[in-house]
Write a protein that binds this DNA or RNA. Structure first.
Lengths: 202, 202
DNA sequence: CACACAAGTTTCTCCTGTAAACATGGAGGA
DNA sequence: TCCTCCATGTTTACAGGAGAAACTTGTGTG
């Protein structure tokens, strides 16, 4: 009972393992209806073990959401980093990266913006989300400096474009951007409409 | 035990009463974490009674979402109906009505677009949601006919504006449109940006 | 080398969703 | 009038889940 049992009493990094299991289940089912006990079971520990690392089920969900924001931020930063011909092109790339992220991780993306990952009760999560939002603001500020975007309050631009991108992502996840309903390339089309309003007339 | 008991064995319209209770709890807590048993309890019936009217808990949630779409549609239609100076003004009114609805019913609005009200498994709900979406499409079509909006695929316009309005609503609900961050009137500002891209240059 | 503490496990209670069997009372036919 | 059916209630039962409490195990540190 104690010899070749390859599961030592102490797991080593159970916290990470639980998060990985939960992320896998989130990706597999595209929802977070899983129970904490199921996560524990699949991770191979007792059902009470998770409580040593997460106060309750919701805290685990907020942790997942936080990871989602970090990954989304990385994705967007990466999409913007290659030398693009213009700030506008950088914006389009970042927006498309965000929407692609949502399509590839629909469960996680939904969780990030759901009330089950309540940002008002978790300063840490709120800060992480704001940091991701800041990537967009930074891009818009640079665009204003180089004359690409209109010199209105940057946060108004940020609200408008964040709303647009997030709205498109949600529509895409909900399969409401079907080609026969909305044309062959709705995302670039919608972004163009927005950018026509955001960019300086030239 | 049977005299002044003002609760007859048969409720009369338990289905409606359960829905009303659930809507009230949704509004009170701004989430749908309530249990079916709690709904039954507050409605004053046994915990199994709801199953005579809803196959399971999710079916009740979808019913609530459906009611939400109907109400949203009414609100938007109403906002558009008074004689407005222009189609553009009608659009702004409808969009603001939608966002106001979301702010006044954040729980319900979230539920309507959550995966717990899965539209892919409920044709009735899907149809109701599409009908509400159709109000927007109708307005855009009229605007194209009278030359207000650019003559591109109407569904592309619909996707762009729906994304924008829905995105703004979600941001507003999440209290991310604070004045100090985003200016005094972010919604009209964002809608203007969008409309500048949607309307015919003139 | 002892031992305190972090990280597991077991056990327990209360609650939920949902199924099944039973009860009730109003509506429609004999 | 009365009987019987059925929709709509209730009671009872059960499988699980959340989370608390008490117990166990090993490991790092004096």
């Amino acid at each position: 009972m104690s010899e070749t049992n390859d599961r030592p009493y102490h797991h080593g990094d159970l916290r990470r393992a639980l998060i990985d299991t939960a992320l896998a289940m989130l990706a597999a089912n595209q929802n977070w209806a899983f129970t904490l006990r199921e996560v524990a079971r699949r991770t191979g520990v007792s059902h009470a073990a998770p409580y040593k690392h997460f106060r309750d089920r919701e805290m685990l969900l907020r942790e997942l959401a936080s990871i989602g924001f970090v990954r989304l931020g990385e994705t967007m930063t990466e999409a913007m980093s290659p030398a693009r011909p213009s700030t506008r092109a950088q914006f389009v790339a970042a927006a498309q990266a965000c929407i692609a992220f949502a399509c590839q991780n629909p469960g996680l993306y939904r969780l990030m913006f759901s009330s089950d990952a309540d940002k008002t009760i978790d300063p840490q999560l709120h800060a992480t989300a704001m940091s991701t939002f800041g990537i967009l603001v930074g891009l818009l500020e640079r665009g204003q400096c180089d004359g690409s975007f209109r010199p209105v309050a940057v946060n108004a631009l940020a609200a408008a474009s964040w709303a647009q991108v997030h709205g498109l992502a949600m529509l895409a996840i909900s399969h409401q951007l079907l080609e026969e309903k909305v044309g062959p390339a709705p995302v670039p089309a919608a972004l163009d409409v927005l950018l026509d309003g955001m960019c300086c007339p030239d």
